[in-house]
Design a protein around this nucleic acid. Structure first.
Lengths: 199, 199, 199, 199
DNA sequence: CGCTAACCGAGACGGTACGTCCCGTCTTTAC
DNA sequence: GTAAAGACGGGACGTACCGTCTCGGTTAGCG
């Protein structure tokens, strides 16, 4: 669904311009008014584009929303590379960096606005479900690895199941952000790590 | 927003009849087609009622959906009463009962269909947010109490923060149910308890 | 396609109001901007009615135009009844009355604006063709009868074919109105009668 | 509006090629689907030409249709020249030749398809009106002249107004062709001549 | 023969009208 | 007085064309 490859026959540059402007506008519209109230005409206006141009590149509203939200899943890949959270520090410190990053993403726009919509959409539509599951699996893998490393090095109890622990940690952050009036701030993340990984 | 009290001036029995049928139908519609695709006409048809009758009792679609989903928040109160999860068994066993109950609720219809919608709606609308936060706080309080009891009795480490632990546990179940292709079955709940409360 | 009968279950009076207002507006729109440029939204606005109300009673633009123009075919039936053009005067005088009436209809709005459109539509669509042929046959029958009477009474030459004569007369008026810059005024009609029926 | 002259600076032959192909295609499209349903894209496809090439030579749809139909008005001028219908035979015979030619034109494609469209267009647009009036005046002049000759030679009654008679005859043929289910065949033309010019 | 200018196809673009769907309001009629 | 039926105004949707535009590729006709 993402068309980032440079196609051979030198694609019309207007196409890229329009597509980018529309995707950006769609994300802004989504953050502003949510899933309900998302109007194609508003997106076109935000993008400074004709309504028909939107429909030329996406068949309908659902497809545009899907593509716009898909863009969100790609950004974090460029986030905590092998540098930070990579090798330096104790496993606990590295886990804290990863969790804090997740907490930040769930607090700041526009991801904060998109995740609940993704969760909802995933309940009904196959495509969204796969995207959400894939996205969360990708994010959580690194955390699981860090915990496994900590278990191996004796920093964490040998009985700790890295998989279950990473679910508890990630889930805890999500829960705090979505189901609770308080945001998952640094203090909360620290307490969560204490509870799951031991003090 | 809920109209369950029996009004004094001998309310027409047809009213209660219609109200209940419509709420039931709204829930069924919601489970069937989700938030998008929820049509007032379908609800009326499911309830065997005229479209205008729906609007006589609820001002608009949002109010009806809210009321129907509110009904879900009340049911679990009749679930694990003071009997099970109350006093019998170890703290670990009682926590497992509570978590398993939550996992069941998130797996079976119609709650399973409503929770993602609630999460999404909470992102945009004040009322839904309060309802969701209240609902989850209510459910989680009992779990936090059980953990605190376990800490007090020495069954769990004295350093364990019951609040953080209950967030990790509840969040883990939610995460598994919503963000993962696998359901939160009994084995998963057991592993989660091991990870957070120690083996 | 005309719904003038009083239906049994006491039809909602708003329906009649809307239908009449819309038909009137459609005719006005047609006279104002012709077939091309005929916009459903303009019709609704002229009728003081919502756009959806138009579509509730007619499936599409073609059907509405057809119905509106059909109304024209009915009006003249109430025109020269058995009174004028009926029995009084010579055959020549009665023919002149009928032809003058036709000339008037082709000169004044809104029929004047509708006939060219009907002719055009008849070239392509079966339904319009039948309507136009029926309409013109109905109008011309009375003229043919009058001429036949004149032939029978010796007022016109016995060799005159009433059918051919009435086509020449009606056609002459149409030709003058549509294919000529000058209107079919009284003098023209008189000259036409002289030419066909003799002086 | 017609660009038939060979321009001085040795025009690119591709231009003439495209223009002719497009005009031919436009006429075919018109005959096939009428005024409504006439799509520029179809014309381009019929002509085996890009859509933009059509717009390079005509500013819009109206201009193309006008030019295509204008071609029809010119052809008949080369039809019954001073040769046939010129001097040979009686006035009655010569009138019959002219009327039969008109009847043929109104029966066969593509003129048959274009005339109703021209009549309709003439009702709304100045340019079309002038074209139609000029076209019909030109065609009818010869008929009027023949009748006047017949009156002068004593073949027709001295009281016959050639102008009115030619309108009755031409109008009769048009009426039969357009407003009647039966075509203006030879028998009809003969009867019409009998009625107007006497037997 | 090679160059330049133009014509050409393909199709993206902004715009407008269409016909559909659904909402929330209202009116009418039956029970 | 409540309910069912459904007409109504409104507004967003997705489709179909229009007429404008930008883009390379090809082709005519001159040097």
């Amino acid at each position: 669904m993402s068309h980032s490859e440079t196609s051979s026959p030198r694609e019309d540059p207007r196409i890229g311009h329009s597509r980018r402007a529309i995707l950006r506008a769609a994300l802004a519209e989504f953050a502003a008014v949510g899933h309900a109230g998302f109007r194609m005409e508003s997106v076109a206006a935000r993008a400074g584009v004709g309504r028909s141009t939107v429909y030329r590149h996406w068949p309908d509203k659902a497809a545009l929303v899907a593509d716009a939200l898909a863009g969100l899943s790609r950004q974090p890949a460029s986030g905590p590379g092998p540098g930070p959270g990579g090798g330096a520090g104790t496993a606990r410190e590295r886990a804290e960096i990863l969790l804090t990053h997740l907490a930040r993403a769930l607090t700041d726009s526009p991801v904060a606005a998109a995740v609940p919509a993704l969760i909802h959409a995933a309940a009904t539509e196959e495509g969204f479900r796969d995207r959400l599951h894939g996205f969360s699996a990708q994010r959580r893998r690194r955390l699981t690895d860090v915990i496994a490393t900590g278990v191996g090095s004796g920093e964490f109890p040998a009985t700790l199941d890295p998989e279950a622990a990473s679910v508890a940690l990630s889930g805890g952050v999500f829960y705090r952000a979505l189901m609770t009036p308080d945001p998952p701030d640094d203090g909360f993340v620290a307490g969560l790590l204490d509870a799951v990984l031991g003090r």
